[in-house]
């Protein structure tokens, strides 16, 4: 005879749960009901749920807006005299109720994933402060390197902090969106994860420079290292959605992949559309770093000049292809 009635949001999030142990449950806006709902589209005496002959039956009390079963195929199926099954969702006014019995099967327990531990670590105040401090330091360093004239510390600090605030907009925005969609905001977790990933992106930049500096043109390493930022972006988006939104693993994967493709594909498209039809300037990779990053052995002049033969062939070939 026990019945559990849950008030849920349109997004199926639980708002309130009632556990009742009586054979008639009255629902409506009046204060003499068993479950009192404040939705103005619900009648004062809206519906009864009665236990008879081992089944629960729903009775609509001739209400103005009616009571309907939530049913994907038929939105307007009246719920009057419906024999309730476990897990049924009914619509009344603009509210939704889910009715479950005591023997309702629940989903299996979700074990804590490794991500959960990692996220917990990254959102801890110490780790978060450290991430942001590293970010500010690196940003300041980059400003220092790019400034062609002497620059003082406060100038660098202001620019670096400004930049970190700008980058902080992203995790904040994700947290806001997840809050608005009735998920946990988890601002600290978003911040911690995002800044940790931003720092990894600085690192991948550095790695990319080291590889570009040390390898010859068309090296496989150079192509591989270019994939790192894409992988990092995907990881960031995946973690953002893992923290901020409840969704299936598959959907999370698709979302993160989709956004990554949009970001990099869009960037590539913009670059491609801006490419002039004919570029009279040579395009080469001029990455150089100070001698402490000089790791690879260098080629002899003979080898370098010998290798240039291929360029002459390629140049002639590109003309033949045009014709």
């Amino acid at each position: 005879m026990e019945i559990i009635i849950e008030e849920i949001s349109r997004g199926q999030k639980l708002l309130h749960r009632h556990q009742l142990n009586k054979s008639t449950v009255r629902i409506g806006r009046d204060y003499n009901n068993d479950i009192i709902l404040s939705d103005p589209h619900i009648c004062p005496q809206h519906l009864d749920i009665n236990f008879n002959d081992g089944v629960w039956t729903l009775t609509d009390k001739n209400t103005i807006n009616g009571t309907f079963l939530e049913n994907a195929s038929n939105k307007k199926q009246s719920a009057n005299q419906h024999i309730i099954e476990d897990g049924d969702i009914i619509n009344l006014g603009k509210s939704q109720l889910r009715i479950v019995f005591r023997d309702h099967k629940v989903a299996p327990t979700v074990p804590f994933s490794a991500f959960e531990n990692l996220i917990d670590l990254l959102r801890s105040p110490i780790a978060l402060t450290l991430s942001i401090a590293i970010f500010i330091m690196v940003a300041g360093g980059v400003f220092y390197l790019n400034n062609p004239i002497e620059s003082n510390l406060s100038q660098l600090l202001v620019s670096a902090i400004g930049m970190s605030l700008l980058f902080g907009v992203w995790p904040a925005a994700v947290a806001l969106v997840s809050h608005l969609t009735k998920n946990d905001a988890r601002v600290m977790a978003q911040l911690g994860v995002s800044f940790a990933l931003f720092n990894l992106m600085w690192l991948s930049d550095l790695l990319e420079n080291i590889v570009a500096f040390n390898t010859a043109s068309h090296s496989v390493m150079l192509i591989l290292i270019n994939l790192v930022p894409i992988a990092l972006t995907f990881t960031l988006l995946w973690l953002n959605s893992y923290i901020g939104f409840h969704m299936t693993a598959k959907r999370r994967m698709v979302t993160a992949l989709g956004l990554t493709v949009l970001l990099f594909g869009g960037g590539y498209l913009v670059q491609y559309s801006n490419k002039p039809e004919f570029d009279p300037h040579p395009n080469y990779n001029a990455t150089i770093m100070d001698p402490s990053f000089l790791l690879a052995p260098s080629s002899s002049v003979d080898d370098f000049v010998e290798q240039s033969k291929q360029l002459f062939i390629d140049a002639e070939k590109s003309i033949q292809e045009e014709e």
């Binding site: 039809e277 002899s300 590109s318």
Partner: peptide
């Protein structure tokens, strides 16, 4: 210009004489 030449083909490497 475009009608006269191909685009540049480039290579780079570390070298020592």
């Amino acid at each position: 210009g475009k009608g006269d030449v191909s685009e540049f083909q480039c290579q780079h490497d570390l070298t020592t004489p």
